[in-house]
Design a protein around this nucleic acid. Structure first.
Lengths: 236, 236
DNA sequence: GAGTGGTCTAGACCACAAT
DNA sequence: TTGTGGTCTAGACCACTCC
């Protein structure tokens, strides 16, 4: 049989059908849905077409498949809110505002006991340390305190961080493997408060992030934002 | 030709090949990669197999495809850090701790001017309002202040929020369409501080979330967490 | 052994872009 | 008109689960 011209592809029709039935409760979490063969017969299409529909729903975590056993409705997992945090320069630019950064420190250091532990290296290991303050329309909005694994970004010290952010440079040289992060609300130490031009009685919104690349810890960043004039926002 | 038994599927081999070449810089951002036909010939496989490899990389945002034109290397992945925020009950349970919640309010109200605006409805529209305090090992860790669109969750008032969280109920009745959120660090109003058993001099980490479902605003939540004992964490 | 999913083929027709 | 991707077929063999 030849594929008929149609507004929506058949595999999409099947996906929609399955989603609708799951939503309607025909099959509940953990239930098996009909086999590929059964669906192929029901829709009068080839098994490959059904396979694509079901495979895509599986990659979307709507279904689980077990070879030799069957296809099952996955557990609802919408309990999580995904928050995307963009790089500060992108964010400011996308608001149409002016971004400027001030380099406060850019040095090579030997890892202290505690840093070495966080980077999973020996004390004395070479690290780079940078401290940059980001301004939005000349108002300080982020202090970026960053430690960088020297092995993954040899040229870190010679970058011009007025024109490129550390993020942009690091993304280019060290493809991201994984990220650990935490967000907290804390009072800033005095030197951070000073750089943000706020009092150290004002709370900060802080993002900690540790990235892995090439099976090493690539960089550990702490980003301080004045709580009074900054929040993480976004949508999906 | 018959598919040979092999450790890794052919389409995966092709995906790996493409990823490696992109990583190596053979094709840079925006460059066209070889056509399906060319890859099929190069790997001596059918076009459908190549198609699957390329289609999956496209859904992973590694490639862009333009019908009639070609397949191109997508722009570098985001600088964005993705943060997943789980429901508080899940999170506490996954730490192996005891979760308990206290229902402080569960009523029907008519939307005020400002609420009506946020929900994009007329003032006077029926909304539900719940206030729940969540405890981890008997320590208050979240105040969940939630407004719910009555049209999307008619039975909201008759739920037993000791055994099911509002989230769990709402996920079941109103499939999620989209989310807006923001995270900020602020001082709590007194009634929130009281429920968390903290002073109103202690900062809170606050997550605001507005969800859409069936083309309406489904629910608007504000979650207050004591900054001293809570942070959002996770990894990818 | 029967049933399931996992993969692959060698064609086909279509829609669209570039020329 | 040529080349690209988008979709679909009607088979096939395989690995695995379950009985």
């Amino acid at each position: 049989m030849i594929a008929p011209p149609s507004a929506t592809p058949v595999f999409q029709t099947i996906k929609d059908f399955l989603l609708r039935e799951i939503q309607a409760g025909t099959w509940k979490e953990g239930d098996a849905i009909p086999s590929e063969a059964a669906l192929a017969q029901q829709f009068n299409v080839s098994r490959m077409t059904v396979n694509r529909a079901v495979r895509e729903l599986t990659s979307e975590q709507i279904l689980n498949r077990i070879q030799g056993s069957g296809t099952y409705v996955a557990q609802q997992k919408y309990q999580a809110t995904l928050v995307a945090i963009k790089s500060i320069a992108d964010e400011i630019r996308s608001r149409g505002h002016a971004h400027r950064s001030e380099l406060h420190e850019l040095i090579e250091v030997e890892a202290s006991e505690s840093l070495a532990q966080q980077f999973q290296v020996e004390p004395g290991y070479r690290l780079f340390h940078s401290v940059i303050v980001h301004f939005e329309n000349e108002i300080a909005i982020q202090v970026e305190d960053r430690w960088v694994n020297s092995a993954l970004a040899q040229d870190y010290l010679s970058q011009d961080f007025a024109s490129i952010t550390p993020n942009e440079y690091l993304v280019a040289v060290a493809p991201l493997q994984g990220v650990d992060y935490s967000i907290e609300a804390v009072m800033p130490p005095k030197h951070i408060a000073d750089m943000l031009h706020i009092s150290n009685k004002e709370v900060c919104l802080v993002l900690h992030r540790k990235t892995r690349s090439q099976n090493q810890i690539a960089t550990i960043v702490t980003m301080w934002h004045p709580g009074a004039r900054y929040q993480f926002t976004g949508s999906f």
